[in-house]
Structure formats: structure tokens, C-alpha cells
Nucleic acid binder design. Structure first.
Lengths: 248, 248
DNA sequence: CACGTTGGTGAATGATATTTATTAGCGGCG
DNA sequence: CGCCGCTAATAAATATCATTCACCAACGTG
């Protein structure tokens, strides 16, 4: 119980300086080792403080991680926002958003990784500041799509939120290999490919698949799905749900 | 040092029985608490064994998780595979794969979550059995798209792997809210919406945006991207990269 | 029925995040 | 100018788990 009366050295620095030192050290250690293999003791050493001091500024290891990622994401949003403001035209804007999301992943893969794989899965994410930031970030695409629909450039029956999920989901799937530090990708080329696909869809020219035939196939598919998957009767077979054809 | 010579009870059961007991208990504890908050001691109690016994069958906590998820995923593949074999037609097959991925997530959200958010991100995932299984699972869509291109039903310039990323990425993004146990989704409706969007794309009718105008917009976008994003000179501006129009 | 072997046991160990008792140094006040 | 209380930093203690290990119950074998 009795503690030896050791001489101790005290490191007195302005609090902002300490906080930014700790966050900088934490960023390095987290990105090098991942969250669970990052040691508080390691962060403390690199920040030039003692372990206990970290808990004076951050409630626990997880809050430290969140603060580090928040800081990065805020920077990202700030610089991105002013550039986006200068882009005109629906098509142009969609392409820009895709391109920049790819760039942000490529520019700091380790932090993107922490964001997508460590923070977003956590149960309290929805109530966090990062959730709001990310929401605002991706919502720009929703707004662009809505504007495009309003102006008649995009299909009126498209779901803006589905487009958002498709675009950002696609980007993340595409970059997963890269996030594991394996391989490279070209943001411009990738952005163009994604934009192109989301723009034109997968179907061949009308000539190759006449409307009637497609709808017939779809109806067959619907019927079969019910049989094969054993859908409970409560869930209705989809109403026509036909792929909207160019010329109905 | 000396251990007290306590009487101890020994639980002698066929090894397969013990293993399946442990895996069942582990599945429950992992899905209830998530990986890092799951306690080995808790798993041991529920399986009716002692902590040390778990390490007789599984090298460590992580291997136990992997085995649990592998088991689930194998079941999933088995039943899915025979159903898929009965589906005919490109369009039909794409819709089926989307629908079934949605169903698998909805049927066991907690296990899907462990697979996508705990296992897939890990660094050694690429060399694991689950990686191979998942690869085979998603590769079916790649094959379907290739076949569709060969038969002329799908655009010949579509990238099959990009379609795969777009579809599975979209599904996962869409179901994230659900994975956090908040909200519901209707697999049939969702599958139809996704299939529809990937099929027809986002662009409005040709009539509404004549080819010339779209290409002009695209070229403007390309030029602007270089300026705004400060692309290094080494990365070339994308070649026309025009959205392939229905009637070039 | 002695005896080696297998596999199960539960306590010990080790690694870390977090807490706490204690003190260094600053600033206000006599 | 010096004492004193207060705040913030410190280093050691504690708590929490995963993992290991020394020991022994049961089974099979000769």
C-alpha cells in the first residue's frame, strides 16, 4: 500500500500542445498496428507523456481513436467542400464525388480503414459525430441525384438513396484489396468506370432485348423466386417491378 | 506453487459432441456481444466445459470465431447452390443472386456482421478458407455477367467484376442500418430496386438528353477535374470515357 | 489388476487497459 | 518574499481477460 517516495519529473506543457501530441502519436500507432494491437503505452511514449496522462484528456482508448478519425474526416470535408462548390452540372458532380471519395481512400488508406472497419461497425456509431459527418458527406450525392431528376437529366423513378448506396458501396468493395495494402488502383479510371456503369446500366441495346421479352423473363423470374426461396405467403410477389425500359 | 489436491469432476464426451457444443455456445456469445466483448469464460460456461478445454480444440479465440463463421457460410453456400442451379436466364440469375444475398443477411444478421465487419477486414483474410468460399460465392455473379455479355443480352463493354462490386457493395451498404438492428427491409423489394437500377442505369430517356449534349458535358467535366483536383501530370486525363449511350 | 497414456481440469501466468494515491509546480495571498 | 492550497501529471497498483501448464481422472492394454 505504501508507495516509495520517488523523485518524479513533471512535463508541463500547454494543454493543446499535449492533446495534439497525443493525437498525432495515436494516429501513427493506430494506423501502423490497427486498433486492437495498438498499445496505450506505445502511444504515451511517442507522445512524450506517461500512460496515465492520456486518460486526463481522453476517456478511454476508443474515444482516442474516434477523436483521431474525426479530426482527419473534418479536414477531408473542409477541403473537399470548397472544390465541390465549383463543380457544375449533374453528371459532372456525380463524377466528382466518386473521384474524390476514391482519392480520399487512396491518400490515407490506413485512416480510411479505421473509419470503415473499426468505427462504423460499432454499435454507438449512429449517435456519433462521425455518423453525422459521414451522412452529410454522402448526402451530397443524394442531393445531386434529386436535382438531376428535377431537371429531367436523370430517370424520374430512380431512388436517390439507392444510388448513394450503390456508388459508395461499390467504391468500398473496389478498394478493399487496396485497404489491405495489396495492389493499386487508378482513381480517375475507376471513377470513370463506375460513373459510366451507374449512368448507362448493364442492359444491352434495346434492339438486342425487346421490351416484351425482358418483361416476360422478369415475370418468370418472379414466379420462380417464390417457389425456390419458399417466400412466406405474407410477403407478396413483387408487383411488375419491371426494369424500366427505355421505351415502355 | 504447490497445488491443492482437489477432487475434480471430469466431463468425458465424444469429441465431436464437445466441439459442436463449444461452437454453438461460441456462436451465441459472439453474436450477442460481438467479438471483442465475447468472453472465453462465458463460452466455456455455456458449452458446459472449462476454459482450458476450448484450447484443446481451437488454437485461440480468433480461430474459434473463424470456425463458427465458416460453418455458417458453408451451410449457406450448400443450400444456395442447388437452388441457383435451377435458375435460367441472365436476368433471372442476377435477380436471384441479389435476392439471396439479401436473404442470407436478413436470416442471420449477427453472423453476417461478424463475417463482413470482423473477419473480412482482418489482414490474413486473403489466405483464409472463408476468402475462397466468399470468392466462389460472389464469382457466380461475374460468371453470369460474362455469359450475358457473350449472349448479347448485356453490354459488351461492361466490366463483370465492377458489376460484382457494385451489386454486393450496394447490398451491404443498404443493409448496414439493418445490421445495427435498426429497421427492417423487404428483400424482394430491395432486390428488385437494385436489379432495376443496375439494369437500366440512371440516365433519363435519350430524348431528354441527346447524345451530343451528354458528351459535351462529360468533356467539360473531365477538363474541370484536372484543374480542381490538381491531378499530377503523370495521370492522364481520362480518354473520352463517355457514358456509352444507347444509340451512339 | 497394475500401469502407461490420453485428454480434461482449474489454477497460474502474462499482457494490457484503466484507476488511484501521491507529488510537482504554479499562482494567489499574507 | 515565502507559505499554502490547488491543479495536473505521475508511477504504481489493480482489474480484466486470453492463454498456458502442472496435475490427475478415466480408459484401455497386457
Amino acid at each position: 500500500m505504501a508507495r516509495s517516495p520517488l523523485k518524479r519529473q513533471v512535463n508541463r506543457l500547454p494543454p493543446e500542445r499535449r492533446i495534439s501530441d497525443i493525437m498525432a502519436a495515436a494516429k501513427d500507432v493506430f494506423t501502423e498496428n490497427g486498433y486492437s494491437d495498438a498499445l496505450i503505452s506505445d502511444i504515451a511514449v511517442r507522445a512524450g507523456v506517461v500512460e496515465g496522462s492520456i486518460y486526463r484528456f481522453f476517456a478511454n482508448k476508443r474515444e482516442l481513436l474516434v477523436k483521431v478519425v474525426e479530426h482527419w474526416f473534418e479536414e477531408l470535408l473542409r477541403e473537399d467542400a470548397e472544390q465541390f462548390g465549383a463543380v457544375r452540372g449533374v453528371w459532372n458532380q456525380i463524377r466528382f464525388l466518386i473521384y474524390h471519395h476514391l482519392m480520399s481512400i487512396r491518400s490515407d488508406p490506413a485512416l480510411s480503414r479505421l473509419m470503415f472497419q473499426e468505427i462504423r461497425p460499432s454499435p454507438d456509431y449512429r449517435t456519433s459525430r462521425l455518423f453525422e459527418l459521414n451522412r452529410a458527406y454522402t448526402h451530397r450525392l443524394v442531393d445531386v441525384v434529386k436535382a438531376g431528376i428535377a431537371s429531367g437529366e436523370l430517370r424520374p423513378d430512380a431512388s436517390p438513396s439507392l444510388v448513394r448506396d450503390m456508388v459508395f458501396g461499390c467504391i468500398e468493395h473496389r478498394t478493399w484489396a487496396f485497404l489491405r495494402q495489396e495492389g493499386e488502383f487508378d482513381p480517375v479510371e475507376t471513377a470513370d468506370a463506375i460513373t459510366n456503369l451507374i449512368y448507362s446500366g448493364l442492359a444491352a441495346e434495346q434492339a438486342a432485348s425487346p421490351a416484351g421479352a425482358v418483361i416476360a423473363r422478369l415475370e418468370a423470374a418472379t414466379a420462380r423466386l417464390e417457389t425456390i426461396a419458399g417466400l412466406p405467403a405474407a410477403i407478396e410477389a413483387p408487383t411488375p417491378a419491371a426494369p424500366r425500359l427505355r421505351r415502355p
